[in-house]
Simulated assay, not measured.
Amino acid sequence: MNKKLEQRFLEEVDLLQGGNAYLRSVKNVSDIIAQESFSKEELITLLQAEGQERALLFDAAHARKIEFVGKQVYFRGLVEFSNICSKDCLYCGIRKSNEKVIRYEASDEEILGACRFAWENRFGSVVLQSGELSSPAFTERVDRLLKAIKQLSNEELGITLSCGEQSRETYQRWFESGAHRYLLRIESSTPDLYNQIHPQNVHHSFEKRLECLQLLKDCGYQVGTGVMIGLPFQTMEHLAADLLFLKKLDVDMVGMGPYIEHEDTPLYVFRDQLKTKQERFDLALKMIAALRLLMPDINIAAATALQAIDPAGREKALKIGANVIMPNLTPCDFRKEYQLYEDKPCLDEDAELCRNCLEARVEMAGGEIGYGEWGDSRRFVNRRQGSSH
């Protein structure tokens, strides 16, 4: 072979090998879902899956859910006991500066009545949720409620709190009085995006949010957080980073759903930049499925916001990875005033109707309700057992 032909042959071999290397580096969905860990680029591929590849992702997530957490779906009776909030988050309908909101505080009797309903109907656990307040009076009230809930249920009801940023002392006090799970959503794990959707002041600090999540872990809680999907300015890279953040933080539970705009918030001016609601819904399902593959033994909630877009939204989430659902036990008189976003469903269903509706939804999704069970995160249980040896 003369020199020119030899050189050309070698160049073509190099090109061919380079091309093969490139093809090997660009994995398709069927390759990725067989793995147990994922890069940011691989997660982006999953989030962009359409058609048959989307179906493969959902099937894999369902299989992983059954393998690690089973068919059980756990009820968390949701009691939104106050919409008074000290925060001014730019996306939230109950933000402090929204003067159109009628503020309320449910009475102790109303809160305990809702918790008694949950106990008598074997929900297993309740979630006490409020706007973010931090004061001695608020700390004392939540503490008193925790003790009363434990007393009325013979210590049987599990309790999750979602009451925002607090001091280590407050978290510890509430933990010792009976709360064992805490949900504190980060909304975005990317500091720049977090700052775009929150006011720029000391009351809305990304660093403070992270610090509180760590404090909760230190106190012994099962820790939950979550993000909004489809925010203005948000990219696929942001969402993939969110998934990796959840993995790195080693959370026990996640509540995340589509961003739904509210006309009485500053972010509403960017509504023309948003994906359609259906696109946000589809992306939220893919986030849930990808998270189930990434963290197969955690609890994942089927967010109510899904049902605000698709009447069967929560069933669809249960089918592809979620295993927690939250019947709304907030007294009906207050529900319309606890709208973090528009078109919130189930505003006029009493607790009995809500329970019957969700029982049917779980059954349609092929699940089994874990009546009377706390439904602790398998990840939390396994971590605790591991540390005891």
Rank of each mutant, 00 (worst) to 15 (best):
E132D: 13
G51N: 10
Q278S: 11
G230D: 04
M326N: 04
K217Y: 01
V269M: 06
S162E: 07
Y268K: 07
F380N: 02
Q214F: 12
L306W: 00
V362C: 05
L347Y: 05
I159Q: 05
Q385N: 11
E42Q: 12
R378M: 13
K150Y: 06
P232T: 10
F75A: 01
E349N: 13
R144E: 14
H203D: 15
A305W: 00
R209M: 15
K286F: 00
D272P: 01
L340I: 15
S86A: 15
S25R: 14
E373C: 09
L239A: 05
Y371P: 08
T265P: 03
S37L: 01
R379G: 05
A49W: 00
Q129S: 12
D218V: 02
F233L: 09
K217C: 03
E50G: 05
A303R: 12
E67N: 11
L291R: 09
C219H: 06
R95S: 11
D272Y: 05
G370H: 10
C212W: 00
K344E: 08
R122N: 13
L340H: 10
L210T: 06
T139M: 10
I369F: 07
S135F: 02
A63I: 01
G367S: 08
K277W: 12
P199T: 03
E207M: 08
K208Q: 13
E263I: 02
